[in-house]
Design a protein around this nucleic acid. Structure first.
Lengths: 207, 207, 207, 207
DNA sequence: GGTTAAGCGAGACGGTACGTCCGGTCTTCCT
DNA sequence: AGGAAGACCGGACGTACCGTCTCGCTTAACC
């Protein structure tokens, strides 16, 4: 029934894979991304360099996969009753991810590499950033259905604002992503648009 | 009258300085930041490597200084009559800077380097990011005095939102910084704080 | 009678053996000995690397065995009537071997490897060079018995001169091993020693 | 007067050059040619790898230059009175070179590399082997003039025999190049050709 | 006819050296 | 003293092979 035809040849070593991801995470914490080298990861992991090059295109890709495990905190997509509550839940989940010890350094590193290496930038977008945006899109879509989504800005722009603010704090100001920011963003973005359009929607929802 | 006591020895060559900045800008456009090397800049500029190392700490510092010329578009700090108008003026000026041809690439490069090289990160913050925030702070301070600054978020957080959104578009989505975003951000941030909470706070403050 | 007790397990694949020897010969002609790799031989032969390592110690050993087939031209050991005629017959046989198309390259390769890898050097001596010397020793021994062997040089030194000259042409000058060299060497080495000993022998032969 | 216009830039470091040649000679003695690496030479010499690659094309070229110093024993070209005496003097000089402690290993290595790397083979021929042959050619030319050069073999073939025998002992039999071989070769090659041709020449020379 | 044992193609593994590139320093001569 | 030139040491890069290993499979001999 199952089509899991094993390919011929020695199978990939899971222990090597895990040792590499662990070593990369440890090393980036100890020596920073600039000091991180494939040689260093290979030595720490007790692995040949080729084994890294065989499965990852760059040290940033290793980090990205290592980070995927840490970022396993699943975004809460269940309905909290209102757009603002949904927003707050999403932001709190993001807050928990970003405030993990090695996570901020890792995020800085992968975003930096994405600027320098366009091919990695594409991978970062498709395998990480886009997924986060899609999760967020669930919230705005639900709010639109529910009727409490402000008319402006458009959902894509809202995502830019939310993610942009978080990334800016991580990369530029090195300020903590604290609960106050959760409150500020949720309140700001959930507040009905000024002018007639907002009222119209409220009226519609109230009917 | 003038205190320009010339130091002894041969003075710094202005032609070399300009050739270096020009070469760096050209090369980063041709080969990207990853392909940019001190050797390459020196060759293109017809200059010895040592001349670069004498005056700049890294290729990112060369770019930062090269970019300063491009970013000469001075932020408008004059009063436009309302917080929203001031915001819109500031955002339009930023829009003009970011949309210069080589500027987005240059911004990406220096922000990436800042993540990788902490010492450069400090220089970027103190010599560029902080200056932009200070210019923006004039606007929020004036709005506070004028009385049309929403109570929340705090001015620093507003700056995080504004700059964060712009940087995120430059670095993550590669979306254009268009006039629609100017409108959205100005409208969103100038809109008065929502209903009861704002009033409650005012009431509390008044007691 | 026969003790050919077959060991259990799958017997060695003759088709794999032949494919390997053929692939090695082809490849050394196409890419040279430096470009010859075990991986390359295995791929060309459609064989796993392990199958090569199981039966040969190095790529030079593969070539040595591959060359053994080409060098099948057996040295003529039958008596031609005189030392000079025997010499000439031996040299002509060597000439036919060396002038085979792939043979000179193969000889160069194995002699080079013997200099670099002492263990292979021992194998080359015992399995190839020494056999050739033993074949040659038959000629000098017969000449001694017959009485037309010059007193000097000693047979071992004569072998050094004969083989040395051939190898030098193959390795150092890349000159063809031509019939003129056959004549020169045969005439030189069969000529009676100068001085009293030579005369004594001549006298003896004349009696 | 002198046109030794120094080129601009830092001049080549003689101390680095000598350290590299010394390190190469030491290492080839310790670990053999197969174990000799550019990395190893660079480390032993306290030098960057690039400094080696800048001036030499391969480790064999380093050895060849290192060996040139050892082989400084100049071939004696002065007239010893007879062809046989000249031959003996040349062979004794070669004997002294080959019997230097590191020399045999070095010769084996460069000749091996010449088989494997054709470009190096050309360099070895033009910079070493050919020079030795030219020195030897002086002896045969002088003998021809003097009249005591046997008619056959031709001078080039005589050189093949002399050098071939020496190289064969070094590479194939690992026998010492001893004084007995000097005597044997000198006697063999100086002995007049058999038959009338030799006598004719003697007669002519005697007139 | 099942069991055992070895050989087989495939290909991942830990390593080592390769030759290149670049960083940052230095040493020269020239201005 | 600054600058152009370019060699220097150091060290990471990504590649190529090495020789070994672990798979599933095939092929025989043996019970």
């Amino acid at each position: 029934m199952s089509d899991e035809r094993r390919s011929p040849g020695r199978p990939r070593s899971q222990s090597a894979r895990e040792a590499i991801l662990t070593a990369a995470l440890e090393l980036v914490g100890e020596v920073g991304y600039a000091g991180l080298t494939i040689d260093g990861i290979a030595n720490r992991a007790g692995v040949g360099k080729q084994t890294i090059y065989r499965w990852w295109a760059s040290k940033a890709d290793v980090l990205l996969e290592a980070g995927a495990a840490l970022a396993d905190v699943r975004v809460p997509v269940q309905d909290c009753g209102s757009y603002e509550a949904d927003l707050r839940a999403f932001l709190k989940a993001s807050y928990r991810i970003v405030n993990q010890p090695q996570m901020a350094d890792l995020l800085r590193a992968v975003m930096a590499e994405a600027q320098i290496n366009p091919a990695f930038g594409d991978r970062l977008r498709s395998e990480f950033l886009q997924r986060r945006r899609e999760a967020f899109a669930i919230i705005t879509a639900r709010a639109r259905d529910r009727g409490d989504l402000p008319e402006r800005p458009a959902p894509g722009t809202v995502a830019d604002i939310v993610f942009g603010t978080i990334w800016y704090r991580v990369m530029a100001t090195h300020q903590a992503f604290d609960k106050r920011l959760v409150d500020d963003l949720a309140a700001l973005l959930a507040r009905p648009s000024s002018g007639s359009s907002g009222r119209r929607r409220s009226a519609g929802a109230g009917t």
